[in-house]
Design a protein around this nucleic acid. Structure first.
Lengths: 210, 210
DNA sequence: CTGCACAAGGGGGTTTTTCCCCTTTTTTAA
DNA sequence: TTAAAAAAGGGGAAAAACCCCCTTGTGCAG
């Protein structure tokens, strides 16, 4: 059974040739090619077949890769995403890794390594290379993120607002007690003492916009 | 009675000639010339005569103007500071204005205008020119800052940490109830609903580092 | 195939912090 | 020399933080 891929890239020529390349690997099959994040949102809202992996370009018009990733994390927390980009931008790499994208590829990657990366991610793992690792090394809290669950990441985003936990609970459609659970587990994982600490942590690590 | 000035600038040649210029105005007298923020700290710690106005360069080795301003706000909240800099950097202007520096001058200013700025500040006012005003206009909350008291600004810095208000009270040598007063007045001035909101506000407006 | 770990969701109750309203004293400015 | 704010603080309600505890489902290793 081959894994399904959704390609999201505004450079049509590149996206088309990438589609051909991916389809030439028999373990993978391209479900579709989209031009920006808004089309991704529409795709999911149209209840089309969910891809195993999304190949996501970062620089795109209308709705860029980071925004798309944020939307995915809110709405499809477990969606595997492999970021694909032209430039090595540390800030963005960090941001994407924080949002649990499964890997970060530069577009000048060799086809063999590209296939290898796809396989890594497909087998429920991550693909980490030079770029991503060096980007992560500059942040001391790097290990802490690995342990965050998708729900916890969503919670952090809500917690960094003036909402009370009760209101956050409503937004996330869970009981306040569940929120208390997220809070407690985050505080222990990240060695925090207060909600203020959580906000500062999130800001420092680009988990939220300011 | 002439007003006293302390010049802080690492460019010795410039600082010296500035000293000559200031001393040529009979309303002003230079108390000393320092080379960086650390020397300012030492100056105050040595209990030397407190100047009416500090002319503070931004780019300096060891301890720059912003850091110096932070230290001054913690330790001498009412010290009048006139920022003096080579480049027009909006981020820094905003930061300095937030910390209630009394004005922001570019080093290519005409001597007459320089004198005018000094007089403005000396007479317990502010000197605002094109640069500073345009920098402030880009932030929607610009007016809100004008009303912050020095104690409140110090409080904000402490509040943006994992300290409890009780601990902040100890740091500021006041009762927890006084802290509560600062908090409340800030909440109403800045239209905030929670400490988290205060932290977000401070981060957004560069009142604290992240 | 049977535990084991862990994510997700929920509960009860206690302590601490936060938040709001209100008063007094001290500075500061008009 | 009044009138304003700032600084300091009190009482009490509400929220947050912090303890324990539980169930269910999933995925993974022995």
């Amino acid at each position: 059974m081959s894994k399904t891929i959704l390609i999201v890239d505004d450079h049509v020529l590149f996206a088309q040739s990438l589609q051909g390349l991916v389809n030439s690997f028999k373990e993978f099959k391209v479900l579709g090619v989209l031009k920006n994040g808004q089309e991704v949102v529409d795709y999911f809202k149209a209840k089309k077949p969910v891809p195993d992996i999304i190949l996501l370009d970062i620089r795109m018009p209308v709705m860029d890769g980071v925004k798309t990733m944020e939307w995915l994390r809110e709405n499809h927390p477990d969606q595997k995403v492999l970021a694909l980009t032209m430039e090595h931008e540390e800030e963005i790499i960090i941001k994407m890794i924080r949002m649990r994208c499964r890997g970060y590829l530069l577009k000048d990657i060799e086809p063999e390594e590209f296939l290898f990366a796809l396989e890594c991610v497909a087998n429920s793992g991550y693909y980490m290379n030079e770029e991503t690792n060096s980007a992560l090394q500059c942040t001391p809290e790097k290990n802490k993120f690995q342990n965050l669950t998708p729900r916890e990441v969503v919670f952090i985003n809500h917690a960094c607002s003036e909402l009370t936990y009760k209101e956050v609970a409503e937004k996330m459609n869970v009981s306040p007690k569940t929120i208390d659970g997220y809070r407690e587990s985050l505080f222990s994982k990240l060695e925090l003492k207060s909600r203020v600490g959580l906000v500062l942590f999130a800001v420092k690590n680009h988990l939220v916009e300011v």
